Amino acid sequence: MARRENLWKTRPLFRPRQLLVLAYLLALVLWLARGFVGSAVMINYKLRGEMPQQTVLPADLTTESFAPYSSNEWWTPPDDDPNWYLSTDNDPHIYWQGQGYMETVRLYAGHRLPPGGVALYYLLPGQTDYTETQKVYATVTGTGEYTFDLGGRWVTGLRIDPDSVGGVPTLFGGIELNPPAPWYDRFLPSGGQWLLLLFVPALAAAAAALVLSFFDKEEPKD
């Protein structure tokens, strides 16, 4: 009887393989919950009319160190399209002045030269200055399309830096706020998120197994 009780005490609560399966199941549940919560928040803002979904043309945006070729008689655009712009230094800005719930923003810009970094900055309620801590880098999602993922947040202003080198001829087509996307997009992990989903549960399971091993050791005999 004593031997049976001793075996019961030393039997591990979870085997390493079971911990690994549980960790991946928990990661899947949390990921799906994140997607459903995000969908509910987005629908709420959309029904309240607080989620702008529109294309904003260049004429409706404010620019700084980023001017149309037509503004200077000495500049010669690459072709006759009136939407050619030129960055006049290495820190050009495009401003959208408004507020609303933002998940994604898309910049339409065809560069004739490598643009360097293309980034977006956003303001939160009560803020007036753009900072590096609220910065999103673009993902190229098509020819002349740069998409910024803001993750779903209420913003009170946007600033886009279309290049970071200066002197770049750019065919500027405006920006699109919250462009339409399939409903399942929020459930598809990006490259970095795939890495987290693959490795974090495994590391968590290994850590849990290590901790449990200290409690599952056989008690010393008297």
Rank of each mutant, 00 (worst) to 15 (best):
82 P>G: 09
190 S>E: 14
217 K>W: 10
100 G>P: 08
53 Q>L: 04
201 P>N: 02
50 E>C: 00
162 P>D: 12
180 P>W: 07
169 P>W: 02
15 R>S: 14
207 A>L: 14
178 N>H: 10
60 D>G: 02
93 H>L: 05
129 D>G: 00
115 P>R: 10
155 V>M: 09
10 T>K: 11
178 N>M: 09
88 T>R: 11
105 V>E: 11
161 D>I: 01
70 S>Y: 07
35 G>V: 03
200 V>A: 10
24 Y>G: 04
185 D>E: 10
202 A>D: 09
61 L>G: 13
217 K>M: 05
189 P>T: 00
128 T>Q: 15
141 T>H: 06
109 A>Q: 05
30 L>E: 03
27 A>E: 10
140 V>W: 00
211 V>W: 13
196 L>W: 12
190 S>G: 15
103 E>F: 02
107 L>W: 12
28 L>D: 08
162 P>C: 09
38 G>M: 02
36 F>V: 10
136 V>R: 13
218 E>K: 15
30 L>I: 02
67 A>D: 08
206 A>H: 01
76 T>H: 10
202 A>M: 06
45 Y>L: 04
221 K>Y: 07
144 G>I: 07
158 L>R: 06
38 G>C: 08
156 T>I: 11
147 T>W: 13
210 L>W: 15
175 I>G: 03
70 S>A: 15
125 P>S: 07
197 L>C: 06
169 P>C: 01
156 T>P: 03
202 A>V: 04
146 Y>A: 09
201 P>I: 00
22 L>I: 11
126 G>W: 01
161 D>Q: 13
104 T>P: 00
142 G>D: 12
116 G>P: 07
186 R>V: 12
97 Q>Y: 06
127 Q>N: 08
79 D>P: 10
181 A>W: 06
36 F>Y: 14
111 H>F: 11
154 W>D: 08
89 D>L: 05
54 Q>V: 14
109 A>W: 11
13 L>E: 04
14 F>T: 02
179 P>M: 08
216 D>S: 11
74 W>M: 09
65 S>Y: 15
148 F>C: 12
17 R>V: 13
152 G>V: 04
204 A>H: 02
86 L>H: 09
121 Y>V: 00
16 P>C: 02
38 G>T: 03
119 A>C: 02
99 Q>V: 00
110 G>P: 00
1 M>N: 02
184 Y>H: 14
153 R>I: 04
206 A>W: 12
198 L>F: 11
60 D>M: 11
60 D>A: 15
6 N>H: 08
7 L>W: 10
153 R>K: 15
73 E>I: 04
182 P>S: 01
220 P>G: 07
45 Y>H: 15
107 L>S: 01
141 T>P: 13
